[in-house]
């Protein structure tokens, strides 16, 4: 068995213990100091896109639930300065001083079901946590409605412009058909005149396009105007932000984080110091070390008289020390 590593370990045991003695208490103190008594307020929102809106207007991926889609949207909005500042501004105006960073920090948004979306905020103050959640939800609702209405208006303008063009196209096709019938009255009754049939098909196609655009225009008009209440229902606050009565419990895992990290750091430091000592110690400590000097034999070892640590001996050495000191003083 290699004895030198053991000897170096024993020889420098106090040095190797220093990282543990220093770092571990600091880590525990840090864990205690950072154990915040946070209050958590949460609000549950029911997100169900209005069924009368075209698919293009239902936000998000079709592979995610509406709640997941809206959680992504809200998280992305929270990441923007505009949204966070708007919430902070509204909070400040209502008597709760806040910053964009303060709004972001401690806020969690997650889907809690197919339609259920949860907004949670942790703060040192229960009232503040509640206010921040309320602020975020209000801003989110306002943004959603504004965005949806704006999109609908834009679409309505687009469809209105298209409808005008398509109406002209339809009228042109109708006029062309009427002129052809006037010139060829028998073509309408025979039903076999290819020119008549082509003009009639053009009229039908123009009519269909016109009808479709008109239908789209009707839908977006509904969503932008008369169905505001319905839109509000699509982002419905089921559970308003509550006023927490007690702080949330700090998880054991979080409490143990600093001590465990401190322990790992101390172990790493001690291991590094030990490796360094092992690497740099080229002194002769045991007979094995003399193997580096070929042909040299160990005649014997003389124990260190000053370092005897056997039970019962310290008393003798204490006496020796005292008497030796006395003798030296007498000289």
């Amino acid at each position: 068995m290699a004895t030198k590593p053991l000897i170096i370990l024993a020889r420098h045991k106090y040095l190797l213990l220093i990282p543990f003695i220093v770092i571990l208490p600091l880590a525990v103190l840090l864990a205690i100091a950072t154990r915040n008594q946070d209050y958590a307020s949460r609000s549950t929102i029911w997100v169900q896109p209005p069924i009368f809106l075209p698919d293009a207007q239902s936000q998000g991926s079709q592979y995610l639930t509406p709640a997941q889609n809206q959680a992504n949207v809200l998280n992305e909005e929270l990441a923007t300065d505009a949204f966070a500042k708007a919430v902070a501004k509204a909070l400040t105006a209502s008597g709760v001083p806040a910053t964009a960073l303060g709004v972001r920090r401690g806020t969690t948004v997650f889907a809690n079901g197919y339609y259920s979306l949860v907004v949670e905020h942790k703060s040192a103050s229960a009232a503040r946590a509640q206010a921040v959640v309320q602020g975020i939800v209000s801003q989110y609702q306002a943004d959603y409605l504004a965005n949806t209405t704006q999109q609908a208006k834009t679409a309505a303008n687009f469809y209105t412009a298209q409808l005008t063009t398509q109406q002209q196209t339809l009228q042109t096709a109708r006029d062309a058909l009427a002129a052809y019938v006037r010139q060829n009255p028998s073509s309408a009754t025979s039903g076999t005149d290819p020119q008549y049939l082509a003009l009639q098909g053009a009229v039908q196609q123009a009519q269909n396009t016109y009808n479709a655009t008109q239908s789209n225009l009707y839908q977006v008009t509904l969503s932008s105007g008369s169905t505001l209440e319905a839109l509000q229902q699509s982002i419905r606050v089921v559970d308003p932000a509550n006023l927490p009565k007690a702080p949330v419990k700090v998880s054991l895992r979080k409490q143990a984080l600093f001590p465990v990290a401190g322990l790992l750091l101390a172990v790493s430091l001690s291991a590094a110091v030990y490796a360094f000592l092992l690497r740099t110690d080229n002194s002769i400590r045991v007979a094995e070390d003399l193997q580096a000097l070929p042909g040299l034999i160990l005649l014997g070892t003389v124990p260190d008289v000053s370092a005897v640590k056997k039970r019962g001996w310290p008393k003798h050495f204490f006496r020796l020390a005292v008497t030796a000191l006395g003798v030296s003083l007498q000289r």
Binding site: I284, A292, L293, L296, L299, G300, V302, P303
Partner: peptide
């Protein structure tokens, strides 16, 4: 170890009986 080796070199050709390891401790 290197000092011991140098000391042996410095001693020249005197036969070396061996080494006495002084001040050992039971660690």
């Amino acid at each position: 170890i290197q000092d011991a080796a140098n000391a042996l070199k410095a001693a020249g050709e005197v036969p070396v009986r061996g080494v006495v390891l002084n001040g050992t401790r039971v660690w």
